[in-house]
Amino acid sequence: MEQPQIDVAYIAKLAKLDLTVEETERFSADLNQVLGYVAQLEQWDTTDVPPMYHPLPVFDAVREDVPGTSLSNEAAVANAPAAEDGQFRVPKVVESAH
């Protein structure tokens, strides 16, 4: 595999992480080293090997569709950094029409 230089600034945007210039440089160096190492996976022949997403097969893991107890509204918002009237406060996300 051609070793790509990871574009940390772009990936940080996807991950919604506001990195400093110093962090971006440090992570670029660290992760390019890690990616150089993991490129060795190429050497293992995985033709016709199904990907393993889970250690053990689990099927039909659904419980009975019976309502149980849930967190109270008060408990659900108790950890919110900003809440009002039992609801989470968020910045305005819809622009007003001009």
């Binding site: 595999m1 790509p4 990871i6 940390v8 990936i11 940080a12 996807l14 991950a15 992480l17 990195l19 962090e23 992570f27 660290d30 992760l31 890690v34 990616l35 993991v38 996976l41 190429e42 293992w44 995985t46 090997v49 199904p50 990907p51 393993m52 997403y53």
Partner: peptide, 29 residues
């Protein structure tokens, strides 16, 4: 942060098969 960046990268468009899918197959091995 470092691991979030690495994880986001290996799942990102264009790299998913080379890294994430490949790793899951090696996991099977």
């Amino acid at each position: 942060k470092r691991r979030i960046i690495l994880g986001t990268y290996v799942l990102s468009s264009g790299f998913y098969d080379a890294y994430y899918a490949k790793a899951q197959k090696v996991r099977a091995l």
